[in-house]
Design a protein around this nucleic acid. Structure first.
Lengths: 339, 339
DNA sequence: AACGTTCTTGTAAACGATTACATAAGGATC
DNA sequence: GATCCTTATGTAATCGTTTACAAGAACGTT
């Protein structure tokens, strides 16, 4: 276990200046003799350059921070995974912060970021408060936001089109002949919650279906537990023949409740989830889910950030990822196939 | 968006030396006048100390690296989450590396670690090769391993007792009157795979049950997909009345296959998973699972590492977390309750 | 009043790299 | 062979902190 070794040690052993050592090790031109002696000395001493010293000098940490709202939700895990892949590929390390959904934690984290431990940040906030926006604008490093932002707030940004996503779900159900399409949402005061509700309303009116309060429930949280409560409420007050859920976890909860009530999926009630996470596939029956492009969004965000780090004053970019529907067992095939 | 500001700027504005600024900001004694002037100047300039510079000087990064094998597995996500909580609480940041299960990636990562971007490492390797052990021993920072290590390799280490865990599962099934207990394992060349197989063998012989090849299958991977293949193989060659799975994902797969074959859980076949992850609860029926203490292990590992960073030459510590069984719907109640 | 404490504050040297600049040496050109 | 250009290497400054040390100031003690 070689203790430590610095440039000067290597330089002494090789009989050259530290500048030469640095140059050789960074592949800058040097004579064959020097190159060889430095190489020899470096390996003999087990020299490894110090990341911190380099960072201080060149002003880059080669670290990217990722702040996710809820690690319990598989969609964030998938995103995290993809971000990790992209950034490590580009030579960056990933600093993870699982600042719950509490905006004040996120703000603390941003304050820490200003100490410059990372070159940039990817953040996917569940709730966007004014304070959070203010803190984001104070941030000294580039930020990419996954998710929608209030109008007028300009950040590199990649978002899903959840309204269109819900549109796909409703259309799919309508085609299959379902007429009473319910909706289980997450908290409406979150960014995705609000967007998904708007999408449901739009899709229902577009297909000329009534919007009734009995057919809507919203969970306190995007979790299975909260979903169970919401599903119980929904199914005790109405008898839909299909239910769209704002989330795969909520969809699993809906299916559980249906199963408890002895209602068959998809024969009696069709279920559609959102995010198209692993659990949609794992569930039994497997769940038709709206793929909001989480992996693509994650990748796009990571690439956006890396590009921004390379060219700091490129124009702000907004990417929208198109949704698609992954049909599985929880919804029936279309009754009258499109001609 | 205040650009930057250093100690010297603050010092100039406050009319004191940079040493005084540093002292005031670090809470070292200083006269009231100086303290106040420095405070004023610091806030006026929006001064935030540089993490990199501080790291270089004090030789600590306040970062802890976590290397997990498989982010697709919810048990690692749960561990990651817990580690994150503990380290941030202690003032460290978490650097995440999702080096697949490929040992060479992990070795690369270790090499990077030697550049000193983190003060310590928590690693949970799926496969432990000689090269990996060698690389771990070369590592310049303290390492805590989650999982078992070859005899004679000394690291701070926290492990589960999966043999005993399987013992709990088998005992539970035997009590419920099951007589043909099958086993679906993950890859046997992994650390957990080997341990769980050994545990199954031990538990079966202990209860005087026959060990037959037909009743065992091993998946190529600890994933749902691989589990489906293994389950298909198992149930086509034998008719167990219970199946213990090395993993919750494998258990979900087993249940899916059983459902496809029209076999009822738990009436005809009982299913037990391991790790007691969220999906055990989400599944329908919910899955009885051996809790190997993943969260506790994660917490213990994090605490161990932090302790080691504080007192570098404390003796090496090995923590073993006891397993427990979380009974859910996938297993029947005991037939003859213990007197 | 001289001296020894104690308390503040400033000066300057680290930490370990990168890199602008200077200098020396080697070739090319005429 | 003198001049210029190129290339190789060394010297030293720099990144932004922390901190050992020194120097003064203030104060109490005898």
């Amino acid at each position: 276990m070689t203790k430590k070794s610095t440039l000067v040690l290597v330089a002494e052993r090789a009989g050259v200046s530290i500048a030469s050592v640095s140059r050789v090790l960074n592949g800058l031109p040097a004579s064959d003799g020097v190159t060889e002696r430095v190489r020899e000395a470096a390996t003999a001493l087990g020299y490894v350059p110090s990341a911190t010293a380099r960072s201080l000098k060149v002003g880059k940490t080669m670290q990217i921070a990722l702040a996710v709202a809820d690690v319990g939700n598989p969609v964030y895990v998938a995103m995290m995974h993809e971000v990790s892949r992209v950034v490590t590929e580009a030579g960056y390390r990933l600093v993870l912060s699982s600042t719950g959904s509490d905006p004040s934690d996120q703000i603390d984290f941003l304050a820490g970021l200003n100490r410059g431990f990372a070159d940039g940040l990817i953040m996917s906030p569940l709730r966007v408060t004014d304070e959070l926006v203010a803190a984001l604008q104070e941030t000294r490093v580039p930020v990419v936001i996954i998710g929608s932002l209030p109008a007028g707030v300009e950040f590199d940004n990649v978002r899903a089109d959840s309204a269109k996503g819900i549109g796909l779900a409703v259309k799919h159900l309508v085609k299959a002949g379902r007429e009473r399409i319910a909706f289980i949402n997450g908290p409406v005061d979150t960014v995705p919650g609000a967007a998904r509700l708007a999408g449901y309303v739009r899709a229902m009116t577009k297909h000329g279906m009534p919007l009734v309060a009995d057919m809507q429930a919203s969970a306190d949280d995007f979790t299975y537990r909260a979903g169970l409560v919401a599903a119980r409420e929904l199914f005790s007050q109405s008898t839909p023949d299909a239910v769209v859920c704002a989330n795969d976890l909520l969809a699993v909860a809906a299916m559980k409740e249906l199963s408890t009530r002895g209602i068959r999926v998809p024969e009696q009630v069709a279920v559609i989830g959102m995010d198209d996470t692993d659990i949609a596939e794992l569930a039994n029956p497997s769940i038709t889910s709206v793929d909001l492009g989480s992996v693509k969004r994650a990748r796009a965000a990571a690439k956006l950030l890396i590009r921004r780090l390379e060219t700091p004053d490129a124009p702000v970019e907004q990417v929208v990822i198109k949704p698609s529907l992954t049909v599985r067992e929880s919804t029936p095939a279309a009754q009258n196939p499109t001609p």
